[in-house]
C-alpha cells in the first residue's frame, strides 16, 4: 500500500517504450510509472506484450527505443545482473530453474550475488527465509528439475525474494494455485508490499490481483488501453471489450 511519504517518489518510470520482434509490435509508446511502495497490476489478453514488458524492464530483452528509470536512474545501459544489484527482481512466467541444483542452491544464488555484501551465514539465512516464505521447506535438498510446475513457480518466487528487491516483478505467479493456496500467496505479496517493496504483478486471476494492487494497467497489442484505479480500469468499456468479455464480474474477493 502507498503511504503519504512514499507516494511522491517514483520507483519505476517507463516512458515511450517501443519494441518489435520482426514485424510484430509488442510495445508501442508504453508509458507508466510505479511509485515507491506501490503495488501495480498489469492485465491484458494473451500475447499483449505483458511478459515482454517485464523483459524490457529487467533487461533480459533490449528495447528498441524509450527510457526506463529506476528511482530516477536510467537503466538502459545496465544488464540484468546490474539491474538486480540495483534492487529489481523478477519471476519468469515459464519457470527457469537451475535444474540440477537443489532448491536451496537455486535460492542461494539469489542471496549470494547481491551488492550488499552479506556474510556466508547471512546469505544462507536469506535463502532459508525465502524458501520458508514461499512454502518450499519440504524440498530444500530436491533438485529443482524434479519439482512440479507449481513448486517451480514457488521457486521463482523464493529466488526473487532472496534477491531482497526494492521492486519485484511478478509474472503470472498465481496460476494453478488452489483456493486454499491462493490466500497464502496474496498474504506474502501484501506483506512484502507493506514492508516497502514496490510490486509490478501480471496476473490473469483478476480478483486476486485487484485485492492487492493500488493501480491497474491494461495493455493489448503492445499499447496501454487503460491505467488507474483498478475498479475504474475494469469498468472501462475498452478493457471489457478487449480483455474481460461482457459477462465479467470482479467476484470472489479474497
Amino acid at each position: 500500500m502507498v503511504n503519504e511519504t512514499q507516494s511522491h517518489v517514483s520507483a519505476l518510470t517507463v516512458s515511450d517504450l517501443n519494441k518489435k520482434f520482426g514485424r510484430v509490435i509488442v510495445a508501442e509508446g508504453i508509458s507508466f510509472d510505479v511509485k515507491a511502495g506501490e503495488a501495480f497490476g498489469i492485465v491484458g489478453p494473451n500475447g499483449a506484450g505483458k511478459s515482454t514488458l517485464l523483459n524490457l524492464i529487467n533487461g533480459t530483452e533490449p528495447s528498441d527505443s524509450g527510457e526506463i528509470l529506476f528511482h530516477g536512474e536510467p537503466l538502459n545501459s545496465l544488464d540484468p545482473a546490474e539491474r538486480t544489484h540495483k534492487g529489481i527482481a523478477r519471476t519468469f512466467q515459464i519457470p527457469k530453474p537451475f535444474s540440477e541444483m537443489t532448491v536451496y542452491e537455486n535460492v542461494l544464488v539469489g542471496s549470494t550475488f547481491l551488492k550488499s555484501h552479506h556474510s556466508r551465514h547471512e546469505r544462507s539465512e536469506l535463502a532459508i527465509d525465502a524458501i520458508t516464505r514461499a512454502g518450499l521447506t519440504p524440498f530444500f535438498n530436491t533438485p529443482a528439475g524434479k519439482l512440479r510446475l507449481l513448486d517451480r513457480k514457488r521457486l521463482e518466487l523464493a529466488r526473487s525474494l532472496a534477491c531482497q528487491p526494492k521492486l519485484l516483478l511478478l509474472d503470472e505467479i498465481a496460476g494453478g494455485l488452489t483456493d486454499a493456496e491462493l490466500p497464502v500467496l496474496l498474504e506474502i505479496i501484501r506483506e512484502l508490499n507493506a514492508s516497502g517493496v514496490a510490486i509490478v504483478w501480471i496476473e490473469h486471476i483478476v480478483h486476486a490481483l485487484v485485492s492487492v494492487v493500488d493501480r491497474l494497467m491494461c495493455i493489448a497489442g503492445g499499447k496501454v488501453i487503460a491505467i488507474g484505479d483498478p475498479h475504474t480500469v475494469l469498468e472501462d468499456p475498452k478493457v471489457i471489450e478487449i480483455y474481460l468479455g461482457s459477462d465479467f464480474q470482479v467476484g470472489g474477493a479474497v
Binding site: 529487467n58 533480459t60 544488464d79 540484468p80 545482473a81 538486480t84 544489484h85 527482481a89 523478477r90 519468469f92 527457469k96 530453474p97 537451475f98 535444474s99 540440477e100 541444483m101 542452491e105 542461494l108 544464488v109 539469489g110 549470494t112 550475488f113 547481491l114 551488492k115 529466488r159 534477491c163
Partner: peptide
C-alpha cells in the same frame, strides 16, 4: 555456485545477479 548456475540456465543466472 555462479558457474553451476550458468551451466543450468544462463538467463536466470544473470537475472539473479550473477555477472
Amino acid at each position: 555456485l555462479a558457474l553451476t548456475a550458468i551451466r543450468d540456465d544462463q538467463t536466470a543466472a544473470g537475472v539473479l545477479g550473477v555477472n
